[in-house]
Amino acid sequence: MTGTTRTGLRARWAAWSAASVVALGVVWLLVGWIVFQHPRTEQPARSDALLVLGPPDRTRMAEALRLMDAGLAPVLVVATPGTGDLGDDPGEAHYTRAEQTCAADPGYEVICFRPDPSTTQGEAVRLRELGEQRGWEHVSVLTYRQHVARSRLLLTRCYAGELDVLAFDYPSVPRGLLREFAYQSGGFVKAWLTPGCDQQLPWRPKSLD
């Protein structure tokens, strides 16, 4: 094989590889647009409780309180995961807002908890516990649009009752749309590697006491 032939083969291989990467990227974007940007959601309906997946930032708490004021459920459950999560305020502002909501007397029961682990899976485990303790048969869940598909997957692994997943939209996606697609894609990979309700990756076990 001559040097010219080898060079031509390398060029064709490089072109084919680049085309394959571009094609895979386009497919990923299309799937992300369907799964993350246009997920299946339910309309608000009377349920036993409304679970607000954390962090309890201003945007999602405003929507949660609007739904509760409309009579969606008799119990509001608010997850307060660790700081540095997605939201419109940094750090302890999430906890301050959650504490204010829990300390108030809005005319319905409010439960605040810190998930363990501080992830959507930890929130799902806590929903299972609360559902079993209180006999909840129908729960509404509130989260932001790009998180709907993954949260539904994790929650239905733990909670056997009827589940309505309600979506809200931030004025602008905090991470940016492409970064959000990448983040949620990584979350799905982790979910597929840990198929049980509370199964954890071996190098990141739960921190239950």
Score class of each variant (00 low, 15 high):
A79E: 14
H38T: 04
R6H: 14
A19P: 04
H147I: 10
R6M: 14
A98Y: 05
P44T: 08
V125P: 04
R179F: 13
E63H: 14
M68E: 02
P44C: 08
D69F: 02
H147A: 11
A15K: 07
T156K: 12
L30W: 04
V21T: 15
A98I: 07
R12W: 14
A160P: 06
V31Q: 02
P81N: 02
Q184K: 00
D89G: 07
W203V: 15
V27C: 11
G71C: 13
G54P: 09
L127S: 05
V189M: 03
W28I: 13
H94V: 00
D169W: 00
V148M: 07
G25S: 11
G196W: 12
L76Y: 06
R10T: 10
T5S: 12
P106M: 00
L178N: 07
Y144M: 00
H147N: 09
M61A: 10
V35Y: 04
R157N: 06
E123M: 03
V189P: 06
V27K: 02
K206D: 13
L193S: 06
P55W: 02
E180P: 02
V139F: 03
T120Y: 02
A18D: 00
L65D: 13
R152C: 01
Y170T: 00
A167I: 06
L153Q: 08
R128E: 12
P205F: 00
G8H: 13
C102R: 09
A124L: 04
T156R: 14
A182K: 00
D69A: 15
